[in-house]
């Protein structure tokens, strides 16, 4: 068992593009769920729209990388409107059902062979990196230390992702400490009370859905930035994983979603390396290496349940500020 390699992989995962992508999506869910109380179960669709919007505009329409990002973000804004206008008048649990269904519709649209020319259907999309890499200010070469050794492109993606993440966190922090954020939190507590005070609750919920959706779309883009857009990623369980990361860190916090994503990916990577290694040296004789990969996801499910039951406020949250049982 190569302990050093396992630790190195785990360390590397802490700043992986996937981790940053999750953190952005989790920030989006903090906006939706943690602060506004919108149980959006369709975050995967926002991420898919970001990633596909980015890749398709570059591959099919020859957009530069930033144009692709604008398309991805614009797509998520339109999706938020389409999703929000008919559903935001619904009470919480209905919203969850509708968003889950809408996310499936979006995924199947990207997966169907009808639009194969644009979406690559089941193969997904790749080979859209040239424009983004052409903008890389870092000279060629390999940099870093310990587990964090990457080439110029590797660093460019990570640095870009971290900057976007920092920006998103800053925006969320700024709006949530403003009077706008006060209205949003009021809506989470009781939307009728807020309505009775003359606030247009529907408009605020829509704004929240759009802002969080943009974070999700950027998360999808960062996730897809270094490699490819794979339709198998944007399934409902992606939304659940992002929720796990969010609840781990604290749903009604700014840094919680980020820390939660880092821990989520750290533990995931550790387990995906450690469990097969343990199987191989015979410590876990009752399972195969393939089964050990499934066990990993079972553990995620168990962790999510334990979190919701025993520590709903997450690592950073204030116990009083978010509980599921009111």
């Amino acid at each position: 068992m190569d302990i050093l390699q396992i630790l190195s992989n785990t360390g590397s995962s802490l700043i992986a593009p996937a981790t940053i992508g999750y953190a952005l999506a989790a920030l989006g869910l903090a906006m939706h769920f943690g602060f506004t109380g919108l149980l959006n179960m369709g975050m995967a669709a926002f991420m898919a729209i970001g990633a596909y919007g980015y890749a398709i505009s570059i591959l099919t329409f020859g957009f530069p990388w930033w144009g692709g990002m604008l398309v991805g973000v614009g797509g998520s804004l339109i999706f938020a409107l389409i999703l929000g206008i008919p559903t935001l008048r619904l009470r919480g649990d209905y919203l969850a059902i509708v968003t889950i269904a809408a996310a499936e519709v979006v995924r199947l649209l990207f997966l169907t062979t009808t639009f194969d020319k644009y979406t690559g259907s089941a193969d997904g999309l790749s080979g859209y990196h040239a424009s983004f890499r052409a903008f890389n200010p870092i000279p060629d070469g390999t940099y870093g230390f310990g587990p964090w050794v990457y080439n110029a492109n590797g660093w460019w993606v990570r640095i870009f992702g971290i900057v976007i993440l920092a920006l998103a966190a800053l925006i969320l922090w700024t709006v949530m400490r403003s009077p706008w954020g006060r209205v949003i939190k009021g809506i989470r507590e009781d939307e009728d009370a807020v309505r009775a005070l003359g606030k247009n609750v529907f408009s605020y919920k829509l704004q929240s859905l759009m802002l969080g959706g943009v974070f999700g779309a950027m998360g999808g883009i960062i996730y897809a930035l270094p490699a490819s857009v794979n339709p198998g990623v944007y399934v409902t369980s992606l939304t659940f994983f992002v929720y796990t990361a969010l609840l781990l860190g604290g749903a009604a916090t700014i840094f919680g979603p980020i820390i939660g994503s880092v821990i989520f990916w750290g533990v995931q990577t550790l387990l995906s390396n450690l469990l097969p290694a343990l199987v191989n040296i015979g410590v876990l004789p009752f399972m195969t290496t393939t089964q050990s990969q499934t066990v990993r996801f079972i553990l995620v499910g168990v962790a999510l349940m334990l979190l919701v039951i025993y520590r709903p406020q997450g690592i950073l949250g204030n116990k009083k500020e978010l509980t599921f049982v009111k």
Binding site: R182, K185, G186, R188, E189, D190, D192, A193, V194, R195, A196, L197, G198, K199, N200, V201, K320, E321, L322, K326
Partner: peptide, 21 residues
């Protein structure tokens, strides 16, 4: 909300304090 903006404001029989504010 528009009614409230015109200056007609109400309270509720079942109190609606925004608990976590």
């Amino acid at each position: 909300h528009k009614v409230a903006r015109l200056g007609q404001v109400r309270t509720f029989q079942l109190t609606k304090a925004l608990g976590l504010l």
